[in-house]
Design a protein around this nucleic acid. Structure first.
Lengths: 178, 178
DNA sequence: TACATTAATGCAACTGGTTGCATAGGCGTA
DNA sequence: TACGCCTATGCAACCAGTTGCATTAATGTA
């Protein structure tokens, strides 16, 4: 299970509360591994039980319940152990292919608007990634090992979206030939 | 939920038993929407209750329990209703990006072998798709609407794998610069 | 005849992820 | 002061998907 390892990584970068993790997730690794606050809190609880992380009342908690989590040595070891493991490829699992197939067999159901909508959603994501790239990885910046890896991850997202956009263009063109 | 609609589509092409569906799934739409036999049997049960499909003892069942499922008009309507709906984009959810990030923050953990392994798994899939393409969509065949859509779906798989292979090549090259 | 394999279906338990709701303090503003 | 929003955490119920196992019949093979 990757969520706890994603959390360990995030907490190594910066000890944080569950809430902060949830927000940071949305902006970084969350592009490749989504999690709701519920999952995050649940997982933090488990990890604390397992002795991988420790929680303290956050310094700027005031009178709130805010807790800050820190990775313990056991957590760091677990991350190192896990990171080297072989894992499964992500599964290609796309609802829309099911709709397309239904359209081929029992349609046509007029999928053009949906094709266009999806193409534009991919374009939105691509623009968002490009904006992050321009901000975080300007060409003049010195490429440390860490920065290069982070950039590489982002490029996976960029290429993924570009690829789908190209496919949707092809699909739309095919549709207009009918 | 797409599984039942994938099943409806499959059953429209060809009334079948759960077992047959499970095997056909592995070879066609299963590339884009996986399901175990368990899920399929469970779903067939639900759909029969909902009045979308009907089951009869399969003509060549002999003394076995084999049942054959057929789509009823209500099922066909449900498929048409669903097919036109807007759906969510598939989520980009890749374990390996979590490992890479862990490697950037707390590594290096020596991810090269895993990078190579994953690249070659993608290459395997690509070859499998290419083989299907050569067999099912030879250039001389007449492209009906249905055939063109099926080919389009397959191409999504092909481009997806090509895209990942290109990314892994870039990643491996980056790694060798260290 | 015995044994392994494949066809065919299904139960039970579990895991990961989602949804809806609840709580409670802090902060800005009308 | 009252209202709404944001920060922050959590419970409970649910759903989809996975895993392991069990059953029964037919088919092939040593």
């Amino acid at each position: 299970m990757s969520l706890c390892h994603a959390l360990l990584t995030s907490l190594l970068e910066q000890p944080s509360s569950g809430y902060e993790l949830a927000r940071r997730f949305d902006k970084s690794i969350g592009h490749f591994w989504q999690a709701t606050h519920q999952q995050i809190y649940r997982e933090l609880g488990r990890m604390e039980k397992a002795g991988w992380i420790r929680s303290d009342a956050d310094p700027d908690a005031g009178r709130t319940r805010k807790r800050s989590y820190t990775v313990l040595p056991a957590g760091r070891e677990e991350l190192a152990r896990w990171a080297g493991e072989a894992g499964p490829l992500p599964e290609l699992r796309d609802e829309f292919m099911v709709r397309l197939r239904a359209d081929a067999v029992a349609g046509p159901f007029g999928l053009r608007p949906e094709l266009e909508r999806r193409r534009s959603l991919h374009a939105d994501k691509l623009h968002a990634y490009r904006a992050i790239e321009a901000r975080d990885f300007p060409s003049e910046a010195e490429p440390t090992r860490q920065r290069r890896i982070h950039h590489l991850i982002l490029k996976a997202g960029i290429q993924y979206e570009q690829n789908w956009i190209a496919w949707y263009d092809e699909a739309l063109q095919m549709l207009s030939e009918d």
